[in-house]
C-alpha cells in the first residue's frame, strides 16, 4: 500500500524531471509547451495520488487547480503566443545539448546530496521523490540561465514553480490552503505579466532573443 504510494510518487517525480530534461534537447518552443503541459498533468496526478492516499479533500482541489491552470490554461496561452513567434527556435543555446545534459545530471546528484537531511528527517512514504523535486528546481534554473529565448525562459520558470509545488506536495502533502491560493494567484498574475513583457520584447526588439537585451551594462 504505502510502497505503491511511494512507487507512484517516485515515478511521478522522475517523469516531471524527464519532462524538464526534454527542454534541453528539444529546440522548438512547441515541444517545450507540450513538455510543460505534460509535466503539469503528471504533477496534478501526483497531487491527486497523495490526496487519494491521504484522503485529503483540499489536495483534490489543488490537483484540480493545477490541472486547470497549468495543464490547460497556461499551455493554451503559450500556444497562442507561439502564433506570432513560432519561428523563434532555441537554435544556439549558450550551452550545447550534451554539456547541458551532463550539467543537469550533476545538478540532480547535487540535489540528492543536499536532500540527505530531508530524506533522513521525513517519514512520509513520498520522501524518496524529494531529491528529484529539488533536482527539477535546479535543472529548471539551469534551463532559464542557459537558454536564449524569452519564451523558453518563461517555460523554464513555470517548471521551476512546478518543482516547488512538487517539493511541497512530496514533503508536506501541500502547504496551507491560504498560501496555496495566494501562490496560484501570484503564479497566474506573474505569468500574465511575463506574457505581456514577452509581447513587449517582441514589439521593441522584433525578436525574442534575450541576447539582444544587452545594452544595460556595468
Amino acid at each position: 500500500m504505502s510502497s505503491l504510494f511511494s512507487q507512484l510518487a517516485v515515478l511521478g517525480s522522475s517523469l516531471t524531471l524527464i519532462f524538464a530534461l526534454m527542454l534541453l534537447w528539444h529546440r522548438s518552443v512547441d515541444a517545450y509547451t507540450t513538455a510543460f503541459a505534460w509535466q503539469s498533468v503528471v504533477l496534478a496526478g501526483i497531487v491527486a495520488v497523495v490526496a487519494y492516499f491521504e484522503r485529503d479533500p483540499e489536495l483534490y482541489f489543488v490537483a484540480a487547480m493545477l490541472l486547470l491552470l497549468k495543464g490547460w490554461l497556461i499551455p493554451r496561452l503559450l500556444r497562442r503566443m507561439e502564433g506570432p513567434f513560432g519561428a523563434e527556435q532555441e537554435l544556439q543555446p549558450y550551452v550545447n545539448t550534451a554539456t547541458s545534459l551532463l550539467i543537469s545530471g550533476l545538478l540532480v546528484l547535487f540535489a540528492y546530496a543536499v536532500c540527505r537531511p530531508l530524506v533522513a528527517l521525513s517519514h512520509l512514504p513520498t520522501r524518496a521523490g524529494m531529491p528529484l523535486a529539488l533536482g527539477l528546481i535546479f535543472v529548471s534554473l539551469f534551463v532559464i540561465a542557459s537558454r536564449k529565448k524569452a519564451l523558453t525562459q518563461v517555460i523554464g520558470f513555470l517548471m521551476l514553480e512546478n518543482g516547488i509545488a512538487l517539493l511541497a506536495v512530496l514533503g508536506t502533502y501541500g502547504i496551507p490552503l491560504v498560501v496555496e491560493i495566494g501562490v496560484f494567484l501570484d503564479l497566474l498574475l506573474g505569468f500574465m505579466v511575463m506574457q505581456l513583457f514577452v509581447y513587449r520584447i517582441h514589439e521593441t526588439f522584433e525578436s525574442l532573443d534575450v541576447e539582444q537585451l544587452g545594452r544595460l551594462k556595468h
Binding site: L141, Q153, F197
Partner: peptide, 18 residues
C-alpha cells in the same frame, strides 16, 4: 516604453521571480 526600460524590466521580472 524604450528598449532599455523593456530590457531592464524583463531582467528584473525574471531574476526577481526566480
Amino acid at each position: 516604453v524604450t528598449k532599455a526600460s523593456v530590457e531592464a524590466s524583463w531582467k528584473y521580472i525574471l531574476i526577481g521571480s526566480v
